[in-house]
Amino acid sequence: MKAAVVVFPGSNREHDVAAALERASGQAPKLVWHGEASLDDDYDLIVLPGGFSYGDYLRCGAMAAHSPITREIIHKANNGTPVLGICNGFQILTETGLLPGALMRNASLKFASRYVRMRVEAANTMFTSRYKPGQELVVPVAHGDGNYFADDATLDELEGEGRVAFRYVANDNPNGASRDIAGIFNAKRNVLGLMPHPENATDPLLGSTDGKPLFDSLVSALS
């Protein structure tokens, strides 16, 4: 599986996700600087990592959504290339319009840095095939703006089409997200955005290995 991890100024989890991808696939992903006008190769997977791109200026992800390379990512995503956006990557994906809704300030106004429990809502996708439907996972979150918001019609559509990927377990919603949503797919299910960090739950030393099947799913679908 040939993966690209796109690095923006202020990204900070690119090495974490690169390590998780390499452990799962045996192949190190390429770290691509956002200033590149184009992705130099055909990648099986494009990853937008966590962090604080452009210092979260204006809105989280707003600046990165207009970075030169992002135009190409949008184009590729629309043509079916799988794209995974984690945390700030999820925020960028909503700002580009590849995913609906927006990520707002946590309802508590506090930065949430802890483990949360979330449930796999859709296990029939290239991102989640190694999970069981309804499986409960323990994964860390680390964000101040993870409060997923969309209007009721959009939320109904996401639920009706089975496009909610992960949901926080009741009473463990760290940010006030609408309907406890932690991650969603686009309509074609080749784009996934989620706030929790599966890459930081891939080794017993990290306290959980519940994020590992996500990367194993991608490897089995894309290798």
Partner: peptide
């Protein structure tokens, strides 16, 4: 529309 506001919210 393009940058200054996120018209979703």
């Amino acid at each position: 529309e393009k940058l200054l506001a996120n018209t979703v919210i």
